[in-house]
Design a binder for these strands. Structure first.
Lengths: 146, 146
DNA sequence: AGGGTGGTGTTGACATGTCAACAGTGGATC
DNA sequence: GATCCACTGTTGACATGTCAACACCACCCT
């Protein structure tokens, strides 16, 4: 037999991807319909908001687990739409949530909440939700190799 | 209070995303280093392979849960590299795994297996792995809204 | 002062994904 | 058999992400 069997590990990997992407697509569709925000933009706004509206660009990238470049490009786009502003600071750049951004996020968080509940929590049930929480924590706490 | 609290559901959503993307990045990095294949290309090859090397383009898109357009573009690229071939058939297009594709996949599946084990299974432990399996199945079986 | 050096952010070229419009094809239905 | 219709796939414009190279700056060191 010259061909390789994907094996258990790979199968779980593929299924996980499939499930994640399915839920993600559903949530994003709902959310986007309600706010016109892309997933990435929403993440930025949420994190900014949770941090009081101001963050070092650096810290933002870390909080999101993103690449510097990606964030830079996205912020450039968001700046043009006046969601955020950038200003030079000590050693780096400070990102500030602007009124338009705040308004948009206020409008879309409820939609996101509802979408998550509908597409994730309701499908999992209370015990499934707890199990997922557990799994996520385990994964995030083992963030060794970065 | 004019600002909105993200709430429980949203928090779980953000954490899940974070965990998924972290593991994904690690797995892909390992896998790409070993094979030069992108994640999407690998998915296509794996599914093709599991189906005996031939599939309707249509069925492939469904199996992957992808958009027609995306698959079309990707297949065009993969065709140029001779990983696959396309041929007209009854009502649609048939995709065939070519030797170069088969060779590449044979070379990268072991790497993928190892990467999944290292970054996912080992971090979760046996019980965590089972819990994840359970969750994934629950989500996939509720694939109503498509 | 004169150089390193590490950390931060930007830029431009390129790869990839998304969206909307289109083209072909194989039945239904009259 | 003509017309309509749903299904399948392609195309091109555009949005987004990735990569490598660069610029800037604070700090250290001598």
């Amino acid at each position: 037999m010259s061909t390789v069997d994907p094996g258990e590990a790979t199968k779980l990997w593929l299924l996980w991807k499939r499930a994640y992407e399915m839920v993600r697509a559903a949530v994003i569709a709902d959310m986007t319909a309600a706010s016109g925000l892309s997933e990435a933009e929403l993440s930025v706004l949420v994190h900014l908001h949770e941090s009081g509206g101001v963050l070092r660009q650096n810290a933002l990238a870390a909080a999101l687990g993103w690449d510097r470049t990606r964030l830079s490009h996205l912020l450039t786009r968001m700046e043009k739409r006046d969601y955020i502003a950038r200003g030079k600071v000590a050693n780096g750049v400070e990102v500030t949530l602007r009124p338009a951004g705040r308004r948009t996020i206020d409008a879309s968080v409820p939609a996101l909440s509802a979408a998550t509940r509908r597409h994730l929590l309701d499908r999992l049930g209370p015990d499934g939700t707890n199990a997922l929480k557990d799994i996520v924590e385990r994964l995030l706490s083992s963030e060794d190799g970065r």
